[in-house]
Simulated assay, not measured.
Amino acid sequence: MKVASYQAPYLPFGSMDAVGLIAGQITACEAEGVEILCCPESVIGGLAHESDGQSPSDVALGVDNGELRDVVASLLRTSVLVIVGFTERDTGGALYSSAAVLADGQVAAIHRKVYPGYRTVIRAGEHLPVFRHGSTPFGIIICNDIWYVEPARLLAAGGAALLFVPTNGGHLRAPSAGFRARGDNLPIARAVENSTTVVVADVAGRQGERFSYGSSAIVDPDGIVLAKAASSTETLLVADVEPNRRIEADPRGWDGYTNPAVSQAFLRLSQYGRDGNDDRSQGLAPVD
């Protein structure tokens, strides 16, 4: 099946211009037979730079009250399933960095970022559902979530063959070479670790002192980069990908239980962190 990643321009905070831009990308996807289009995190309204005094609540949209549907109405008249990032306000006023799944003429599902960071009013989502497009199971992990092992592994364990990663690198003032390398290599790592296709959609460009070089890419389960966006350029990436989980995926990485000493040490580490001062983490002897 064909999937696409839209590397969108880095728009000013508060802009809703992305809706029209995405509509144009949907037209291109229809012409190329694309079934699923992934768009960046917070591309609708923009990512708030809270340290600069911007507030996520200024661009937040409610789902139950129809605000989101009204904004994305022009994106619903297509057979292409669209994944698009926005800031969500729930009925109690809590804010989330979320991705809407637009399918069959409606807002079919909402997924919330599970690791929003430490210094933000954005709350963490608590669920990692596996969605379906026809017979193809897929999951969503949002931006910072790809830095963690757990979200991708849980979705893969749930059967996801594709992992879509709405991303927004626009918060960087001066992206280092190391940060850029991680942006390029983490999708490859998650693809290989989990025998899944990983589709990243980022923003690219400059707003004042902030810059996003764009990390959009499509990576297959072997870590082969099927498509990669050029830096700082608006791009639509399209690739043919495997629509289902491999029946005979490489078991390495999934068979840690075969050495209980290692698997139990890892379990304790994941429960109590890497702080050696926690008595519960003592006794994690290295395994030769």
Results as ranks from 00 to 15, higher is better:
F131Q: 00
D255R: 15
H171W: 15
G45R: 05
G214V: 03
E234P: 11
G14W: 07
C38F: 10
G62K: 04
P12W: 06
L186K: 07
A124L: 07
S270Y: 12
G170C: 05
T197G: 06
E126Y: 05
G62E: 01
V200D: 00
N259G: 06
G14Q: 04
N259H: 07
T78L: 14
I36A: 04
S74M: 04
G33D: 10
E88R: 03
A157I: 01
V71S: 11
E32C: 08
V82L: 04
V121N: 03
Q54Y: 08
D222K: 05
N277C: 10
E30D: 12
G46F: 06
P187N: 11
V149F: 14
S212H: 04
S97W: 04
L154A: 11
Q271R: 14
R246A: 13
V262C: 11
E30K: 02
G276T: 10
V241C: 06
P129V: 11
H49L: 14
V84S: 03
P251Y: 13
S74V: 09
G20I: 04
S79H: 15
V287R: 07
Y96T: 02
I224K: 14
G170Q: 05
F266I: 12
H127Q: 15
L37I: 07
T78S: 14
A227P: 05
N144F: 08
V203C: 01
I83M: 04
S263D: 09
A48R: 00
I146H: 03
A160F: 04
S5V: 01
D275P: 08
L11I: 10
V114D: 00
V238K: 02
S57Q: 13
I218Y: 01
T258K: 15
Y96S: 07
A230N: 14
S263A: 12
Q25T: 05
Y118I: 15
V225Q: 11
T233V: 13
A94S: 14
Y10V: 06
L163Y: 02
G24E: 06
D104W: 07
E234C: 12
V107C: 10
H133F: 12
Y115L: 12
G158P: 05
D58Y: 10
C143K: 04
G45W: 00
P166Y: 02
A103N: 07
E41I: 05
G93D: 06
V3T: 04
P12R: 09
S231C: 12
I26K: 01
A109P: 00
T120C: 01
V149Q: 03
D17Q: 10
T167Y: 10
E242N: 09
R119H: 14
G183W: 01
T27I: 15
G283T: 12
A18G: 03
L226N: 13
A152I: 08
Q54R: 12
F211C: 01
C38D: 02
E150T: 09
